[in-house]
Design a protein around this nucleic acid. Sequence first.
DNA 1: ATGCCCTATGATATAGGA
Length: 262
Amino acid sequence: MRIVTWNVNSIGARLERVLAWLELHQPDVLALQELKCTDAAFPLMEIQALGYEVATWGTGRWNGVALLSKVGLADITIGLTDQPEYEGALEPRAIGATCNGVRVWSVYVPNGREPDHDHYAYKLEWFAALQATVDAEMKASPALPLAIIGDFNVAPTDEDVWDIAKFENSTHVTPAERTALTNLQSIGLVDHMPRALKGAPYTFWDYRQAAFGRGWGMRIDLVYANAPFDAAITDCWIDREERKGKGASDHAPVVIDLTGAP
DNA sequence: ATGCCCTATGATATAGGA
């Protein structure tokens, strides 16, 4: 079974690329982030035509997450338990579902903006809610393969950014953000390192300053897998080819192949 | 070398991204 996570930076702007990518790589499950559209505006017909069931949570201009599956889409959960709000709004940043006996969470963790910004505190609170939600699920179903996949907006180590010196006083690399990741590890999730097809294992390159061509990337799209999920992984890789050319998302898909049917 | 930003919106600037 092939499961993929991809921050598409607008499903509307990316639709032709997403459809072509689905046809080429045939994932069974695709977790999307940054839809930037409402549920009503999601291109349902085009995706369903390729054989996918779809669950979305999008409210418009920003954020938005979805799960696409060819192998069943059961027990859909919209949002986290006690998910914190930002400026009075419950943002569409997490959606979970069970696909062919595998529990998948598609997450778009808040950016944080600046370490002294309210959004940064919100980011840490959001991580705590994510952990509590998934911890409860894993305790209820310890044998069920489960993974949180998506845009975590944290680079786990200094090796996961092109130049740590450029990140002084920046989010994504602070001790508190990295502690949020190690806290997830403490409840039994493994940061599964993908295989880089070329160069460093980055998943994001900024649009600005020709960052992709210069290799100025970050690994922030992550696979946090419980033991049953991690044991089933046969391959995991970053499709940096998809970052090339005009009309690419600033994030590359991360592909996870698992043993077992289908 | 896949290259000097991209996206959506009560738009003709602005907010957000990371």
